[in-house]
Design a protein around this nucleic acid. Structure first.
Lengths: 252, 252
DNA sequence: ATAGTATGAATGTATAGACAACTTTATAAG
DNA sequence: CTTATAAAGTTGTCTATACATTCATACTAT
């Protein structure tokens, strides 16, 4: 296969550092520089293309960010070996998958009320006070009139921030928390497990009991690391999967 | 709470850009600059600390990478709102969890042989040739004499690259592929699903049939995007979980 | 021979300045 | 008042230079 000659066009509106980044990336991909080998020195590249060394460094730093090369002070810059045992499952929203497929999805609010915390809930929110009240939501997500997931959510509650009608449409946990917390919610922890669903969940989702499901618990914390929101969601195992891509070739 | 006064020490061995990065990060964390608000301009910061604008830009670019701020040309640099519905499950190795807990884990090779591809396998490797041969491995991972996962792996095979004794100890798919492929393996796709285990898997893992399990399929591709390795692993659902942290506060 | 020292080469940090690209605001023209 | 133009402000790119830091090598003294 013949590769078209790529080079640097200093008069282009595309930044030089970006052109060089793409050029080096392509050369690495097609094996001009192999894993473990070193790239030409920054000064070599700079004089080769008659550009500044700082511009070369900008290009190389992009390669470093992409994980394709690594630099060692005093030695040089070397091509990395693609790491293939790294697994990164990234989901902006566990439901995004469904939405992307263009299906008609909708969230149904089963219940919304103010509750007093029982012992279990107090543990989740790391409080001892017995009379503290929380907002409680139960929702079901469905697509094409098929129920896909069931979620219960709790957030802190204060009288000064009542429930708004608009929240009830599609109450996401981060959204609810932001609306009912004094402090800024800044961090979140999620735990994914597999389980077989309970009879109640099976009934709600319209699947047979003991079916395998994804179970995701999420806790949201404020600036002082106090829990201000907690949710537990059950996703049908036969309708969800997570995909991870790795290595040099990534989805653009 | 009183915060110690942080500032820039130009004589420190810690780079100025890094000091400034940490300084700005801390100011954002404690709310001096709130989400949506703008940071001081680069020139302001530069003259405020009597450093170069390029050094300021280096610091801010770190903040951008961390997702705490975003820059808009011509307008300014603004504090981002923590995104809490992003889920990133990252596992260097699905077994790392086990290893970190300091348990005695070991990989047991159940079987290793050369096989001819059946129709199913040919589909996985996107080939039609019927007589092509592949390497086949079956392994079990156990910790504290408890079996945790069961994995079957296939890689391309050529006579010129025979199986080495050393491979049989702990044959990871990327390792096997690298040892038996002509071209460089550069990318990988993994799909995680939930399932209930088969009777065979239940027997091997010593759990009851129909137990919930994680199921991870991995395909490794070479530079020409040809599949050169495929594996399917079953992990005990009661022994594995995935955790994701999100937002501004991340684990250090 | 060994250890210490000097030298060169490579990446890392920092600066000052120039201009480009984009946005907002102020100004002028109709 | 509206619209077009100019100006100012802000981030983005690029350059040339200087020095620091780290590493490998060659050299020197013992």
């Amino acid at each position: 296969m013949v590769h078209e000659e790529i080079s640097i066009d200093k008069s282009s509106f595309i930044p030089i550092y970006y052109q060089l980044f793409k050029l080096l990336e392509e050369q690495i991909r097609r094996g001009d520089f192999k894993p473990g080998e070193s790239l030409p020195t920054e000064n070599d590249i700079a004089s080769r293309y008659e550009i500044s060394r700082m511009t070369v460094r900008r290009a190389i730093s992009e390669l470093v960010s992409a994980g394709m090369v690594y630099a060692q002070q005093g030695k040089g810059t070397f091509v990395a070996t693609p790491k293939l045992d790294n697994i990164v499952f990234e989901i902006n929203d566990f439901n995004e998958d469904i939405k992307k497929r263009g299906l008609n999805y909708k969230t149904t609010l089963l219940e919304a009320k103010i509750v007093r915390a029982d012992e279990n809930l107090r543990a989740k929110f790391q409080i001892t006070e017995e009379n503290k009240r929380f907002l409680f939501f139960r929702t079901v997500l469905s697509a094409e009139s098929e129920r896909l997931s069931y979620e219960v959510k709790y957030t802190t509650y204060s009288k000064s921030k009542p429930i708004l009608e608009s929240e009830l449409k599609d109450p996401s946990l981060p959204g609810l928390v932001a609306a009912h917390t004094e402090y800024l919610p800044v961090s979140s922890k999620k735990v994914l497990q597999v389980a077989v669903c309970t009879e109640e969940e099976a009934l709600i989702l319209g699947i047979s009991p003991q079916s395998p499901v994804f179970l995701i618990e999420q806790t949201i914390f404020d600036t002082e690391l106090r829990p201000v929101g907690w949710s537990k969601a059950v996703y049908r195992g036969d309708r969800y999967k997570l995909t991870s891509y790795d290595g040099w070739y990534k989805k653009d």
